[in-house]
């Protein structure tokens, strides 16, 4: 099945301890892929100089995923690139709306909405939509400005299998919001016909 092109990996724990080296390497790879290198050149350098106390980082624990579901390494890497050092606030005012059950993983409607005044001083500038179990973790990224008026985006996504879908909102005040939702997928869709 083409969804499972990646070689099987050892069963992943729900909360995964990622070594600094892994994170940096992974983050660099993900950065190269999504072309955000310029936004955080200091990541690798900053981590080099970090004290020994910060030997491990646990990015996955910053997102409330469902029990019994694992997240892909791709997801962990993408999450590290997006969150950096931020401690995201979970839940409101960010909401991610998905059906509870998707019979066809090829076409799953989603809505990401943030209650934001969308003024020049306080607006949502970026929304991320991530999958924890698709071959590619980053599903979409949306860039907004105050003139967008309302931080609410919807569309249709593909889901390979039952998993958590994660939305992240970056606010101009520096606040980062995260919301995760579990969705049951009957027939996976990531390009399979």
């Amino acid at each position: 099945m083409s969804c499972d092109r990646r070689p099987p990996v050892e069963p992943q724990r729900h909360i995964k301890i990622v070594s600094r080296r892994d994170l940096v390497l992974g983050a660099s790879a993900a950065v190269a892929v999504i072309g955000l290198l310029a936004s955080r050149p200091a990541l690798a350098a900053g981590t080099e100089a970090a004290p020994a106390a910060a030997e491990t980082v646990v990015p996955i624990s910053r997102v409330p995923l469902s029990e019994g579901l694992s997240a892909s390494r791709q997801f962990d890497e993408a999450l590290g690139v997006i969150l950096k050092d931020a401690e995201p606030a979970v839940g409101e005012p960010l909401t991610l709306t998905l059906p509870e059950l998707a019979e066809n993983g090829n076409v799953v409607p989603y809505t990401i909405a943030v209650e934001s005044p969308m003024t020049d001083n306080d607006y949502v500038h970026t929304l991320h939509l991530l999958s924890t179990a698709n071959p590619q973790a980053v599903v979409a990224t949306f860039h907004l400005i105050p003139a967008t008026g309302k931080a609410m985006v919807s569309g249709r996504m593909r889901l390979a299998k039952t998993q958590d879908v994660v939305a992240i909102a970056e606010v101009s005040t520096g606040q980062v919001l995260v919301s995760a939702r579990k969705i049951e997928v009957t027939i996976g869709g990531c390009g399979n016909e």
Partner: peptide, 10 residues
């Protein structure tokens, strides 16, 4: 408005 899509979009 700008959207960047990945392969996970229908």
């Amino acid at each position: 408005f700008k959207a960047e899509f990945g392969p996970g979009i229908s």
